[in-house]
Simulated scan of single mutants.
Amino acid sequence: MSKVKYYYDSETLSYRKIAPKKGRKIGFIFLSLLGVILSGFLLLVIYLNLPYIQTPREKALKRELSNMEFQYDRLNRKMQMAEGVLDELADRDNNIYRVYFEANPIPDEQRKAGFGGINRYQDLEGYESSDLIISTAQRLDVLTKQVVIQSRSLDEVTELASNKEELLAAIPAIQPVNNEDLTRMASGYGYRIDPFTKARKFHYGMDFTAPTGTPIYASGDGVVTRADARATGFGRHIRIDHGFGYMSLYAHLYKYNVKKGQKVKRGDLIGFVGNTGRSAAPHLHYEIWKDGKKVNPINFYYGNLTPEEFAELLRKSQQERPSLD
């Protein structure tokens, strides 16, 4: 119920009702509607801009997120540098180190392979920066794997280098009798005339003619496995196991300077030239075995002969002279 308003009429000395004007009422309604519209528009503007209005905590979190993205970017640049260094190291590893030590190169597919199977990065999904975090994590995992593979490869190369040094020391690489002590190189590897049967048969070693008592030297590092006269035809002889499949034999000795089980180095004095066993004259019968097969000793005299001496020895060894055993 609306309130009735009155005014005092001084002429009639009485109170009269104030009749409301229609235009004023309409104006009041219009102003009310305008106020509502303006209020609604203001609320709409505030609502639409609400995402851009940040609280102090939101501002702090945004700074942290920006700093995190910056740090991830720095980390990716560092990983890129590390990947470049590893690629260069892998190239040298495959094309220099492993080639030199006769090892198979490691394929790039193995070095840079990812991780199959389950999704390792599922807990990193669903965030605003998930793509950046997941890609960085993947690169870091692959980089870690590359480091592990390269580390194992270098361990293998180190072992190969150690074995290579032992191999180079073990290979029978010197002539067992000094050139100045030789009377002549009597017979080489190949078909020769047997001094006793006069039949042509294969001679599996080299005969070095020298006076009885001439020093004989170990042609490579190894262990003496035999120093006896129990092998048919060889008389007093020595066998040295050099490892890596190599074995050398020294036959028709006058006497020994080593015993079974003794370790020797290349150049050690092991015995003396003689004429024992099936021998036609004082000489050293010398053989080299590789993986159980007799091979031509002429291919192993690179340790103490000049190119000229080797060429002369090769020429003489190829002449088909009668052997001395």
Score class of each variant (00 low, 15 high):
230 R>Y: 09
233 G>L: 13
180 E>F: 14
172 P>N: 05
209 T>C: 01
193 I>T: 15
150 Q>A: 06
175 Q>T: 08
174 I>C: 07
143 L>S: 05
198 K>D: 12
209 T>H: 00
190 G>Y: 10
237 H>N: 12
226 R>P: 02
204 Y>W: 11
160 L>A: 08
200 R>H: 13
145 K>N: 12
212 T>A: 02
194 D>V: 13
179 N>C: 12
161 A>P: 06
238 I>Q: 09
224 V>Y: 01
210 A>G: 00
149 I>C: 03
236 R>T: 12
188 G>M: 08
154 L>A: 02
178 N>Q: 14
217 Y>A: 02
146 Q>I: 02
221 D>F: 02
197 T>P: 06
178 N>Y: 09
160 L>R: 08
230 R>P: 07
218 A>N: 05
228 D>T: 02
243 G>A: 06
159 E>Q: 02
214 T>G: 03
198 K>T: 12
195 P>D: 13
246 Y>H: 09
194 D>P: 12
149 I>E: 07
195 P>A: 13
226 R>M: 10
186 A>S: 15
149 I>N: 04
186 A>Q: 09
225 T>F: 04
159 E>T: 02
173 A>F: 07
214 T>E: 00
141 D>V: 05
162 S>P: 02
225 T>C: 05
182 L>R: 15
186 A>R: 04
208 F>R: 07
209 T>S: 03
221 D>E: 09
163 N>V: 04
149 I>G: 03
144 T>I: 04
152 R>M: 12
215 P>H: 04
240 I>L: 15
236 R>K: 15
185 M>I: 11
167 L>D: 03
242 H>Q: 15
160 L>N: 07
205 G>C: 06
165 E>V: 08
212 T>H: 00
198 K>C: 11
211 P>N: 03
182 L>K: 15
184 R>S: 15
145 K>D: 11
148 V>Y: 10
232 T>N: 13
182 L>P: 12
215 P>G: 09
203 H>L: 06
164 K>T: 02
186 A>F: 01
148 V>R: 07
238 I>T: 12
228 D>M: 06
181 D>T: 00
154 L>D: 01
174 I>T: 12
165 E>N: 08
170 A>N: 09
151 S>W: 00
202 F>M: 12
159 E>S: 05
157 V>S: 01
179 N>S: 15
201 K>L: 14
206 M>L: 09
215 P>R: 04
146 Q>P: 03
150 Q>Y: 01
195 P>W: 11
242 H>V: 11
144 T>D: 11
149 I>L: 08
172 P>W: 01
169 A>H: 04
244 F>G: 13
203 H>N: 10
167 L>A: 07
201 K>G: 11
223 V>R: 13
184 R>M: 15
164 K>P: 01
217 Y>W: 02
240 I>Y: 11
177 V>P: 00
177 V>A: 00
213 G>L: 09
220 G>S: 10
187 S>V: 14
153 S>L: 01
212 T>S: 08
212 T>I: 06
181 D>S: 05
151 S>V: 00
210 A>I: 00
156 E>R: 03
142 V>G: 07
227 A>D: 03
230 R>L: 11
186 A>K: 07
178 N>L: 11
163 N>K: 10
217 Y>D: 00
171 I>G: 04
166 E>G: 07
147 V>G: 08
154 L>P: 00
184 R>E: 15
144 T>F: 11
207 D>L: 06
170 A>S: 12
204 Y>N: 15
246 Y>D: 04
205 G>F: 01
